[in-house]
Write a protein that binds this DNA or RNA. Sequence first.
DNA 1: CGGGAGGTTGAAATCACTCAATTAGAGTGG
DNA 2: CCACTCTAATTGAGTGATTTCAACCTCCCG
Lengths: 261, 261
Amino acid sequence: MEHGAGALSCKGTSLMSKSETPAELLIRKLESIGELSGSQRDALGRLEAARVSVAPHTDIVREGDRPTSVTLLLEGFCCRYQLVADGKRQITSFHIPGDLPDLPFLFLSVADHNVCSLAPSQVAMIPHKAMLGLFREQPDVAHLFWRGTLIDGAIFREWMVGIGRRSAFTRVSHLFCELIVRMQAVALSSEYSVELPLTQTDIADALGLSTVHVNRTLQEIRGAGLIELRRGRLVALDWEGLCEAGEFEQTYLHRQRTEAV
Amino acid sequence: MEHGAGALSCKGTSLMSKSETPAELLIRKLESIGELSGSQRDALGRLEAARVSVAPHTDIVREGDRPTSVTLLLEGFCCRYQLVADGKRQITSFHIPGDLPDLPFLFLSVADHNVCSLAPSQVAMIPHKAMLGLFREQPDVAHLFWRGTLIDGAIFREWMVGIGRRSAFTRVSHLFCELIVRMQAVALSSEYSVELPLTQTDIADALGLSTVHVNRTLQEIRGAGLIELRRGRLVALDWEGLCEAGEFEQTYLHRQRTEAV
DNA sequence: CGGGAGGTTGAAATCACTCAATTAGAGTGG
DNA sequence: CCACTCTAATTGAGTGATTTCAACCTCCCG
């Protein structure tokens, strides 16, 4: 891991896909789920943060940890996961740039699950103290972050419904719909095409399926002409059809507005 | 539904199991997951609230609603649930007295799931305005409520792990462990015995199983001498064994302390 | 041009579901 | 107090979705 401390508003390095600062990304994310005033944006810009590169498949938080800072994903992809007795893995969420996967530990203190990177990633680490200071200064910003964690919860519930009550075909389609909409919201998609560095094993562990079955299900979805998925790129060839196949209703994502592609 | 407005601190009616006010219950709940100062307790006591009786199997919130108050469950039992295309139901959480099942809609505005009672229940309805006023006055209390919703999220994740990766036997055992610990935390259990007004269909819908399979699994768990379950009362005959069978680790519940029985 | 991770395939096994009755229990009204 | 009724629990049999196991293929990367 390379470290680099500094203000969250420092300019992005060459690795940033756009010349955008971490603060700008965070603001964009928050504005995709609510509204910010000028002074609130300013306060967010003053957050201190350390910038870190994370190799793929590296744990960022481990069960039992007591994190002292919050991780803002700048680039890449990561997930939350838990392991069960016999070694099986359940991925409980995927995270894209703009997400704060370990924000819950700001108030839960001790980590009850793991967070790890799935692709080479860049993150900004914001000390808990800085977050709490921001919340004291701007309580409404705290409420917006809270809203963010509540949307996380809504996504958990939606996944639960999928794992518990939907067929493999529906589940996989639904996941793709969700990821596309979420990535659109932070402008990480061109049309209905997104970069998706997931293995079939990752998808299986997220949806409570076996790899073999995910493989066969993907072939079905491809066969229905709904998607194309190769080399880490997912394209929805038939968005309407994919939504229908996934029984996807995006209300649970609680977008303020969906940004045009 | 009978209505009755008044301060949240008004004395409970005859139906209250203990002569405890709604505010006292709420304080007890919050203190099971964190700490409150005297002035914070006072502020909680000043919350205005309307008291309502709810018949069993009555929806309290419906998908698409825009609630304007928060529901504090005083007595009884309720759950969150979602329906899928073919009519199947997934219960995403169970709620016991002290819980605020629709708190998320304070910040999400539009309900993305349903909340309904499973038993005859008493609730206190606290206007959103009153909650927001409390949060303005006592930001740390807001953080404690936030912590509560984060624990909700942790429970969602744990359920996801169960539904996705654990056997029916483990899942059912785990659910019982969780409910017993949660009810102990608000002193609703005597020893390892709790009132549990759930049908096998409810359990099935919560765990992503069929009723038939739940029935057979219960027989197995009973057969192993771990529990007794009749007429709405669950008794853990072998607590250690039940925890082991359910692979139950209670860290995810993030108790401040576990109250003695 | 290996080597390795990830993807694909086939066949057999199984957990859990569906369907369809049957039984038990709690509440109701005569 | 007993039929009646409705809901919940239970049982058996047959089915099916998904898993497991094990092999093989493919593509990327050094």
